[in-house]
Every structure is written in structure tokens, then in C-alpha cells.
Design a binder for these strands. Sequence first.
DNA 1: ATTATATTTGACCAATTGGTTAAATCATGT
DNA 2: ACATGATTTAACCAATTGGTCAAATATAAT
Lengths: 202, 202
Amino acid sequence: MADQSTNTQTKILEAASRVFQRKGMEGARMQEIADEAGINKALLHYYYRSKDKLFLEVFRLAIHDFIPGIRDILFRDVPLTQKLDHFIREYMRVLLENPFVPMFIIHELQRDPDRLFQVFVEAGIDPSEILQQVERSLKDNDHRSMDPKHLMINVLSLCIFPVAGRPLLQRIMFDNDGRAYEAFLEERYQVVSNFVINALQS
Amino acid sequence: MADQSTNTQTKILEAASRVFQRKGMEGARMQEIADEAGINKALLHYYYRSKDKLFLEVFRLAIHDFIPGIRDILFRDVPLTQKLDHFIREYMRVLLENPFVPMFIIHELQRDPDRLFQVFVEAGIDPSEILQQVERSLKDNDHRSMDPKHLMINVLSLCIFPVAGRPLLQRIMFDNDGRAYEAFLEERYQVVSNFVINALQS
DNA sequence: ATTATATTTGACCAATTGGTTAAATCATGT
DNA sequence: ACATGATTTAACCAATTGGTCAAATATAAT
């Protein structure tokens, strides 16, 4: 049935997302994805003809689930500090739900830049308007002057790296204590928010 | 000759580093490494018996070239702000020379955590003493109080992410203008230094 | 010249892996 | 009961890939 069909399809996509995000396109095995989805390889190819097509779909999903939503926050008419605070909280939340996505995107983009960047283009992602927003907010109030690009990348760095770098950071700085690192990430929203807002104070 | 021998060996290691760092363990092909080194596959296996052994050597090198040196800066007896400034400048310099290393380390560590983390253990990397240093410096002067772990990860994030995320950031925010992004990264040392030091001001 | 080592060449093997196929079975709605 | 599509099973194929081997050649030291 169509019900079963879409059900299996999403089961496949979710399984493929997990495997691809953890092991990358080249590291992932179709058999492993089939196992993770609880089906067999034949059915996997029955739904997605090739590894490449399946991967592209997963990559598309990762970007669509991840990139938008950010825009909305930045376009509310509130002071910059509040805007930053909202963004950091919201973005950290999304990150914690999809901790492997940033690394996944960057790694795959390095492997096949031109083709995969098309996915961004198709998704209509355009940070220039976001940058303009940040720029306007920066001029209004009495903050230190700062290149909006640097500010934006600073915020992204502070949010993304601790999540993406977890396999290294948790082991090297937290004795591989998963719970301690969870707690660290949880409290991090406040820390980053304070850090950024303070850095902007003149 | 021993001369030729070591010469070829380093040629192989450098080639393997480039290929492994860009494509990862699973994405790299022995043939590609041989080509990049200007030799053939048989000779490649003559020097390094297996892909696994070659990879492990490359991973070891990446860590040894990368992690140390940081320590030395942080142990000089200078005020925290100056220490941070030195660190950021030095670390950014190393990063620009090895832009693929952080992603490489994190990605591979995710693939095979337990085994690869051994390389860190063998290298005797221990951030606890570094953390103590930062903690002491934080208490001495009139800064905002702050968890040294968060501070350290903030600094690392601000340095590493813009370099590691280049394949995405350059395309999405700089119209894929490589020179513009170079310039952006060059001026970034000052920006990050100011940003961090300002964020710590009470 | 001889020896030893480095290097090349090209063929080759075994295992893995993406992908296919055909037939059987299961489930469901009509 | 019948038809239809979902799913399984298991065998299979072709290409890739890590790795091996043996013989030929080059290079230098002795």
C-alpha cells in the first residue's frame, strides 16, 4: 500500500541519513543502510535506484532541515543583542538534534564541491540578505563596529564547532564522559550568548 | 640509497597526507596516492605494507605536526590577554598551513574512535595542564569570570571553524572568491583576538 | 664487475561492493 | 477469489580495489 510504501521510504531515508552522516558517502555501505532500515538490499535498490541518488536525497534533506528557520529569527524587528540571543538558542537546539549534519555537509562538499553546492543553490539559500540585516542592526545601536561577516562566522563557529568536534573534544577534555559533555553543551547557549554580546559592547 | 629511500618515503607520506586529508580514509585510493607521489602502486606497498598502516602514519603525523607548539605559548608568564593574542595568532598561522587537518582528525575520529584516539594518548597530549594555566590566568586579573573550558573551546572554535568550513563558507558567503576568502582569513587573527579579549572585559 | 637496493612494469588474485534479476511470498483492497 | 503492489530470498554480475608477485631494469656503493 501507499501507506506501507511511504513508511518504508522514510524508514530508508532515516536509516540512510544516520549512516551517511556518520560515515560519509564513501564510508557508507548499501548493505549497512539496508540493515539499519531493517530491510534488504534488493528493496533498498527498489526504492532508490543507486547509492548516488540516495545520497543526494539525504544531502538535500540535511540542508533543508538545517539551513532554513535561521532566516526567520534574524528578520524579527528586535535589537541586535536580542536577535543574537534568539539565534544562538535556536541554532544550538537544532544542532543538538542533528549533531552530525555540519561535519557531513562540509566533508561531502569538499569531496564534490561543484555538484553538491548546486543543492544549496536549488534551496535558494542566500546569506546576503541575512548579512544586510546584521549590518543594519550593527549600525543602529551603540556597539563596537564590526564586519558583519566576521560576526556571523564567529557566532556560527561558537555554535557549530563544539557540536561537530565532539568526538575529539569530549575525549580530550572530558575524559570521554558523555553526560558531562551533554551538560556542557546544554549550558553553552548561555555562555555563547553572553560571550558574543559582551564582545560587542563598546 | 638511504638518501633516495627516505626521499621517496617522505614523498609518499606527503602525497598520502594530501589525499587522505582531502578524501578521508575510505575515500582515498592507493592508486591515487601512488599517482600523487609520482610512483606506482607496487612501490607504494613496498614502503607501506597496507593502506591501514599508511593511514595510521599519516594520522600520527597530522597530530604531531598540529597539536604541540600550542602548549609552549600558553606557558609563558604573561597576562591572559597577551597569552590569548599570541595563541590565536600562532594557531591561525598553523591552521592556514594545514587547513584540512582539523576536519580530517574529527572525521576519522568519528569513524574509528577508540583505535585512533590511542594516537592522542601515545602523543601524550594532556589539556588538563593547559586548562589549569588558563584557569589561573583567569583568576589573577580583572576579567569576567568564565569557565576555562568554555573559553578554550570558544577560542578553538573561532580559529578552526572558518578554516575547516571553507568549502561551505567561501561559496555561500564569498561567491566562491578564493582570494577574498584568503584576505578574510588573513585579517581574522586581529578580529578574533579583539573579539575574545573584549568578551572577557568586565 | 659485482652486489645490493630501489624502482618499474604488468599481470594477477581475492575480497568487497554497487547493482541486477527472477521467482516466491506476503499483504491488502476489490 | 483475484489482482496488485510490497517484500523477501538468494543467486548472480561487473567493476573496483587492496594487495601480491616475479621478473626486468636502474642506480649506486664496494
